[in-house]
Simulated assay, not measured.
Amino acid sequence: MSVRKTQKEATRQRVLDAARELFESKGYDTTTVREIAQLAAVSVGSVFTTFSSKGDILSQVMADRLDALYGELDRLAPHLRGSTSDRLRSIFAIHYAFETRRTRLFLAHIAAAYNWALTPSSRPYGRNPRLRNVIRDCLAEGKARGDVDPAGDLDLMVDALMASYAWTYRLAAWENADAETMSAVMDRHIGLIADGFRPRPSENA
């Protein structure tokens, strides 16, 4: 790697480290690019040379974290047991345990999904396909096992589960709820959603 490339990568990493710290301590909305640059000890111009917007910085901060989360899921998923509902509960419990290590950062990630001014390259909650794919694979396996309606719309089920997962984080924002509390609420949501995706008895049975 050339000296110039090495310096550029070092700048990029300093910006990401500074942004992660500020988003967690101050919140995404109140953090400015100038503050990120100051903490990273780089110029504002250097920040914009590396990232097109503050939203892109948040997206990369989260992408780096999510790599670790999905590495953990890839390791644990083959060992999950029980019905599709049970396996979904385990998947979301792993997510809550991971994301509540930096709850404010994840709340910013969710909030960014509703920011109409984000650039197309930004990847807020819902735009990253990895969580959708994990849930969809679990449901597809449920179809194969016979505890998910074979005629069910997998994408609709995924949307319902992802919406419930994000909405449960209001408890962290409003009541400082921990991972165990939110997982218990999500377990009940999954129970209700599962009532909708279970196979229906055949009318001719």
Score class of each variant (00 low, 15 high):
Met1Gly: 15
Val3Pro: 00
Lys5Glu: 14
Arg12Trp: 00
Arg12Gly: 03
Val15Trp: 00
Ala19Asp: 05
Ala19Phe: 00
Arg20Ser: 14
Glu24Thr: 13
Ser25Met: 06
Lys26Asn: 13
Val33Lys: 04
Ile36Pro: 00
Ala37Arg: 04
Gln38Ile: 06
Leu39Trp: 01
Ala40Leu: 04
Val42Ala: 05
Val44Leu: 06
Val44Asp: 05
Gly45Leu: 04
Thr49Lys: 09
Thr50Gly: 02
Ser52Gly: 14
Ser53His: 06
Asp56Lys: 10
Ile57Lys: 04
Ile57Asp: 02
Leu58Val: 01
Ser59His: 02
Val61Ile: 04
Asp64Gly: 10
Asp64Val: 08
Leu66Lys: 11
Leu69Met: 13
Tyr70Asp: 13
Leu73Tyr: 08
Leu76Trp: 04
His79Ser: 14
Leu80Ser: 11
Arg81Ser: 14
Arg81Thr: 15
Gly82Ser: 10
Ser83Phe: 03
Asp86Met: 07
Arg89Thr: 08
Arg89Tyr: 02
Arg89Ser: 13
Ser90Thr: 15
Ile91Leu: 15
Ile94Lys: 05
Ala97Arg: 14
Phe98Asn: 09
Glu99Pro: 00
Thr100Asp: 08
Thr100Gln: 09
Arg101Met: 07
Arg102Glu: 15
Leu105Arg: 01
Leu107Ile: 12
Ala108His: 02
His109Phe: 15
Ala111Lys: 05
Tyr114Ile: 00
Tyr114Arg: 12
Asn115Gly: 00
Asn115Asp: 15
Leu118Thr: 09
Leu118His: 08
Pro120Val: 00
Pro124Tyr: 00
Gly126Leu: 05
Arg127Gly: 01
Asn128Glu: 13
Pro129Ala: 05
Asn133Met: 12
Val134Ala: 15
Ile135Tyr: 05
Arg136Tyr: 03
Arg136Cys: 08
Arg136Asn: 09
Ala140Glu: 15
Ala144Gly: 12
Arg145Ala: 11
Gly146Asp: 09
Val148Ala: 09
Val148Pro: 07
Ala151Gln: 14
Gly152Asn: 06
Leu154Lys: 08
Leu154Gln: 08
Leu156Thr: 13
Leu156Lys: 11
Leu156Asp: 12
Leu156Glu: 13
Asp159Lys: 10
Ala160Arg: 10
Leu161Pro: 07
Ala163Val: 11
Ala163Arg: 09
Ala163Trp: 07
Ser164Gln: 10
Tyr165Pro: 03
Tyr169Asp: 01
Arg170Lys: 11
Leu171Glu: 10
Leu171Met: 14
Ala172His: 01
Ala173Tyr: 02
Glu175Asp: 13
Glu175Pro: 00
Asn176Gln: 15
Ala177Trp: 01
Asp178Pro: 02
Thr181His: 08
Ala184Phe: 00
Met186Ala: 08
Met186Asp: 07
Arg188Ser: 12
His189Thr: 11
Ile193Phe: 11
Ala194Tyr: 04
Ala194Pro: 03
Arg198Ile: 06
Ser202Cys: 08
Ser202Met: 09
Ala205Cys: 07
